[in-house]
Amino acid sequence: MKWWGWLVLGILLVAHQDYWLWNSKTLVAGFIPSGLAWHIGISVVAGLAWWAIVTWSWPTDIDVAEDNRERAPAPSKRMTKGSGP
């Protein structure tokens, strides 16, 4: 993951600690408690953040691995006798 992906996740986790809304009794749109509304927003932003990350920060070595479709013998099968089942 690129540096900005880690940064976005860090910001989301900090925003998750919304202590400023801890005792707020305001109802957003007349029925959503403000603390709940904030966390609904975090869920939506998380979806957008992950869309950006899988679009622009997808690991390149994974796609290379896909090109090599031949299955290799597992390392345990290459070990010396008695080192693995």
């Binding site: 996740l9 989301l12 986790l13 998750h16 919304d18 408690p33 603390g35 709940l36 966390h39 609904i40 975090i42 869920s43 998380a46 979806g47 953040a49």
Partner: peptide, 14 residues
């Protein structure tokens, strides 16, 4: 109460 969404759901979303 509503704390449960922040405890489990929004954190799990990330």
């Amino acid at each position: 109460g509503i704390v449960i969404y922040g405890l489990m759901a929004s954190a799990s979303g990330v």
